[in-house]
Every structure is written in structure tokens, then in C-alpha cells.
């Protein structure tokens, strides 16, 4: 048994992807089978093995995926960001409101989404990197700011982006175009770019190394503050990206919400093998983790449970992943 496991671990593909990632893919398949069997039993008349279910899970996976990719950079530096969900909503609210109220062109609104996210990232990053505030507290505060700002700007109204036969709905093609799940292509392309940045550029190298030992990097003559802040900016900008894909899939955004997505994105990230202690990150793991989260929420709904179960389950996943991470680190010491 042990030998077979070792043999499996030493396969070329397994080594390339990392054992943890292969296990996660197994988990996805298992979950799919489980939901397909359980949902008709628990919830009369549902059929989980439908294309529409899969597409709906994908829609959820895109924006969670972008959020999770962003927060991967922050977690790699040994920090955390609890503001990404509300920041995503805040940028969707503000730019959507501008489009409706002041007739901003659509392309400008899309750019605004990313910019607003990046501004939040810059502010948070500056506090953490230059003023040495704990990221936990800073991002909690920014989360409230993002929620409040979104509400104030829209006068606490729900904002609807164009849909149906309205003009200017081409942004929805980013998510699906003539039945093709285009969002998947975008997510994969961005993930590849993230992986390249993280593993093959100076920025990525510094971000990961400073997450492992900041003082050693600083004493090597590197301005660690700059790179630490950059991680937050990337995270914020990707939250803006997530906003585009959120409205592309669901079109309406409510003020004062979004914090549940923080945990889901962080869960995706940590499940995928990015260490909460910093210094270790896996983009592939994050993407797979995002789809596990997405499939789970779809499955929970299909089985007829309320979405609150999803929150509880995500919390447990984060806990489990952190425990696994800590244990494996303790063993290797």
C-alpha cells in the first residue's frame, strides 16, 4: 500500500503538479459523483448531472477564482486580506452606478472596476508595508470601508448592470459566449500570467522570499516594502477583475455585502497548498481550490440545503486546511 503510494507520487505528472493538487482533483471528481447520487434522494426532482448545473458552478468559480488568485499573492507574503469580497462588490457598485446615473460608457466602467480594486489594494498595502500595521486589522477595517463606500455612493440601492435585450451587454460575453464558457478561458489565461509572475519574475521571487524571511531579504538590499505593497495591489486589481465576472454572471449587486466571499477565496487558496505562514504558494492549487468551492455551493443548493450550510462548511475547510498545513510543517521540522 505504502509502496504503491510512493510509486504514484513519483510519477512524472504527479511530481510536476504536486501530490496535493492531484488529490484535490480526485476530491472534485468524488464530490461530483456524491452530489449526483445524493441530490435526487435529498431533494426530489433534482438532477445534478446536467450541463446547466455545471455551467452555473463554473460561473461561481470564475469570480471566486480571481479573488483567490489575488489573495494568493498576499498570503504568500505572510499577510492576509479580508477585504477582497466587499472590495469586489464596491467596485461593481460604484462603476455600475456611474454607468446608470451618469451614462459612463461600458468600457470605462470595466476599467474603473479594476482601478477601484487596485486603489483599495494600494491603500491596504501601504498601511501594511510602510506603516507595519498588521494586515489582519487593516483589511478588516478596509472591508468596512468598502461596504460603507458602496452603500453611500449608491444611496443603498441595488445596482443592476445591463442584461437581456438592453444595449451594452457585451461584457457578459466574457462569462459565456454562444454557449462557450469563455470565463474559463479568461481565468486560465490570468492564472497562467499569475503563475509566471510568481515563479519567473523578480517581483514573484521577492514576494515569496519575503513571506518566508522578510529580514533576510531586506538585509540583502531589497526594498521589501515596495514588493510587499505590490502583492496587495495585485490582489486588489484582481478583486476588480472578479467584479467584472461577477456582474457578467449575475448582473445585480447589493450594497453592504460580499464578506462571505473572503472566506471562500481564502479557503480555495489554502486548500490548494498556499501556506498561511507565507513563503509557499501554488497558483494551480488555488484554481483547483476555487472550483471545489464553486462545486460545493452548487451541490449544497442542489441537495436542497440553505446557503448558510455553505458558510459553515467553508469555515470548516479553512480550519482543516490550516491544520493540515501546520501539521505538515511541524513534521518537516
Amino acid at each position: 500500500m505504502k509502496e504503491a503510494l510512493n510509486k504514484f507520487k513519483s510519477l512524472k505528472l504527479v511530481r510536476m503538479m504536486g501530490f496535493n493538487r492531484v488529490v484535490l482533483i480526485g476530491v472534485i471528481i468524488l464530490m461530483y459523483i456524491l452530489f449526483t447520487i445524493l441530490s435526487p434522494i435529498l431533494h426530489q426532482g433534482t438532477n445534478f448531472a446536467q450541463v446547466s448545473r455545471l455551467l452555473s458552478a463554473l460561473n461561481y468559480g470564475y469570480f471566486i477564482g480571481f479573488l483567490a488568485l489575488g489573495v494568493t499573492f498576499v498570503i504568500a507574503t505572510g499577510n492576509i486580506d479580508f477585504s477582497i469580497g466587499p472590495v469586489m462588490f464596491c467596485s461593481a457598485l460604484i462603476s455600475g452606478y456611474c454607468m446608470k446615473q451618469y451614462a459612463f460608457p461600458l468600457w470605462l466602467c470595466l476599467i474603473m472596476c479594476v482601478l477601484i480594486g487596485a486603489v483599495f489594494g494600494t491603500v491596504g498595502g501601504a498601511f501594511v508595508a510602510y506603516l507595519h500595521l498588521p494586515s489582519f486589522i487593516t483589511s478588516m477595517a478596509l472591508m468596512q470601508v468598502a461596504k460603507g463606500l458602496g452603500s453611500v455612493f449608491t444611496k443603498t440601492q441595488t445596482v443592476s448592470w445591463p442584461q437581456g435585450d438592453a444595449p451594452n451587454t457585451w461584457f457578459r460575453n466574457f462569462v459565456r459566449y454562444k454557449g462557450i464558457p469563455t470565463g474559463l478561458i479568461f481565468l486560465i489565461v490570468v492564472a497562467i500570467i499569475c503563475a509566471i509572475v510568481l515563479n519567473h519574475t523578480r517581483a514573484g521571487r521577492y514576494i515569496i522570499c519575503l513571506g518566508a524571511n522578510k529580514e533576510a531579504v531586506r538585509l540583502s538590499g531589497v526594498d521589501t516594502r515596495r514588493w510587499e505593497m505590490l502583492a496587495f495591489i495585485i490582489c486588489g486589481a484582481l478583486a476588480g477583475f472578479a467584479a467584472i465576472f461577477y456582474v457578467g454572471a449575475y448582473t445585480t449587486v447589493q450594497p453592504g455585502m460580499g464578506d462571505t466571499f473572503n472566506n471562500e477565496a481564502i479557503a480555495a487558496c489554502v486548500m490548494g497548498g498556499t501556506s498561511m505562514a507565507g513563503g509557499l504558494a501554488s497558483i494551480l492549487g488555488t484554481v483547483i481550490g476555487a472550483f471545489i468551492v464553486a462545486l460545493m455551493q452548487e451541490g449544497i443548493l442542489a441537495m436542497g440545503f440553505s446557503i448558510s450550510y455553505q458558510y459553515a462548511l467553508t469555515g470548516l475547510i479553512v480550519l482543516g486546511a490550516v491544520i493540515a498545513d501546520t501539521l505538515s510543517r511541524r513534521r518537516s521540522n
Binding site: R205, I208, C209, A212, N213, E215, A216, V217, L219, G279, L280
Partner: peptide
């Protein structure tokens, strides 16, 4: 250990 090296990273890095 504290100021010289990044223990979790490779010799190259």
C-alpha cells in the same frame, strides 16, 4: 538563520 538565509527556499534562490 534570522538574517542570512531564507530557509524554505533553494540554494539557487
Amino acid at each position: 538563520k534570522r538574517y542570512g538565509i531564507v530557509l524554505k527556499k533553494s540554494i539557487t534562490e
